[in-house]
Design a protein around this nucleic acid. Structure first.
Lengths: 234, 234
DNA sequence: AATGACTATTTATATAGACATAAATGCCAT
DNA sequence: ATGGCATTTATGTCTATATAAATAGTCATT
């Protein structure tokens, strides 16, 4: 058990505070001493205590409010962080070989559901791509992507036969906003064939919409091969 | 476009740096000026610049190394934060009514897969619960839970008929480690009946294992009603 | 060519003090 | 009681400065 002593770093203080929360010395919903008091107890300064408490609050252990003080949250660690890896990285990092293939490329007027979803004018031409990502030649992810060329006209001339749209976009268009959803979908015939499974199988699916300064840029539907799971530790 | 001026807060500095990254003034892989130089440019102090850059690094935009300097990451390996709310909160926060029901409670020897998964001795007695969570009386989540009583003997006497196991555990046993996975599963007959759908439907599923100081505490499988999606913005 | 010691630079963190800002609280007039 | 105002207090942030730790780069040594 970490005990207060002189010259504690903000890391030490974080650990002491966490211990006290775990041992119910500071019970859920209870109020911690003020930063000033804690600084004195730890023979530290308010700045250092502040950083420790601020980070614990960011991590979801504490709630802080001016004047009201710092409170222990009863539902601890409510935030999970997931990295959003590029498919290629996700695959190569396990030592497997990554392969990409373009399935289809079209320019066509935005369908109604897309116009509504991304808030773009009806009938505006958009780029529609379908691609596959393989790991050691086994299907890994089937990608259906829509790109609005308005904010990036050069996308229409890009060659997506060897570079995936995500790789290309990441280089060309840094996004400013992102909406990311995860859901379970049922494989239709097309998805099933590309992912080498049966129609009707449950498919872990991600939907990703990005904007650049308020302008919609791209929507991607990512269908993962059966058995995929997204995991995090904390 | 934010332009450097006097008295910039660390937030302002973050924004300016982000803008410059987006406008390729500081291209991917390139090196930023040192904190000292930036502090001078922004008529600020190194402390303030440090906080701005440190946070941008935490958010995945920059990479910082002593002596090596601060570098722009080319693949904004950005991190998505998902709240892991208590089911009850997730429901009541939308203004809907939450209802909980215990379906079944057993004490039985740990099945082999559970022993292996949670690293507990073969045949150790564990508490097995099945529960339902409803929103406005529509099925929301079907929960299958295993609790290892070793580290919390009193769990065997707990009354789970009106309090959900998660609520109970959160109050009693602060966890120290958590593994959280998301995947898509196919509804079996039981799941389908509880979630009011057809067997075979794709089900968004979460698996959650928690430990207390290295001791496994509980494993939960959470089956969400069809249509559920987990969303985050950033 | 490889290894090791040294140095300069950059980030990491701590201290001390000041002012800003939000919000809980109590007091007062109604 | 009730609404509004002033006070108080805890956190939020900035400035200024100092020291520590890591490490890229250099140069000498093997």
């Amino acid at each position: 058990m970490a005990a207060p002593r002189a010259n504690m770093s903000y890391r030490d203080i974080k650990q002491v505070v966490l211990d006290r929360i775990h041992n119910k010395i500071w019970a859920p919903d209870s109020l911690l001493p003020s930063e000033t008091d804690l600084a004195e107890e730890f023979s530290s300064t308010r700045t250092t205590v502040n950083r420790a408490l601020r980070e614990l609050a960011e991590e979801g252990y504490l709630e802080r409010k001016r004047k009201a003080g710092t409170r222990v949250l009863n539902a601890p660690a409510r935030k999970a962080q997931f990295a959003i890896p590029l498919v290629r990285d996700e695959i190569t990092e396990t030592g497997s070989e990554y392969r990409y293939a373009l399935v289809e490329r079209n320019v066509l007027p935005a369908p109604h559901w897309l116009s509504a979803r991304m808030n773009i004018p009806q009938g505006r031409d958009v780029l529609h791509l379908r691609c596959m990502h393989y790991t050691d030649n086994a299907p890994f992810q089937y990608e259906v992507r829509w790109i609005v060329p308005d904010s990036i006209p050069e996308v229409l001339d890009a060659d997506f036969s060897s570079v995936g749209p995500n790789d290309w976009l990441v280089q060309k268009v840094p996004f400013t906003n992102l909406e990311l959803s995860f859901l379970a979908t049922k494989a239709d015939q097309t998805v099933a064939e590309f992912l080498d499974t049966q129609a009707g199988e449950p498919i872990f699916t991600a939907e990703r919409i990005t904007w650049l300064r308020g302008q919609p840029v791209t929507l991607a539907k990512l269908f993962f091969a059966p058995g995929y799971r997204m995991t995090t530790h904390l």
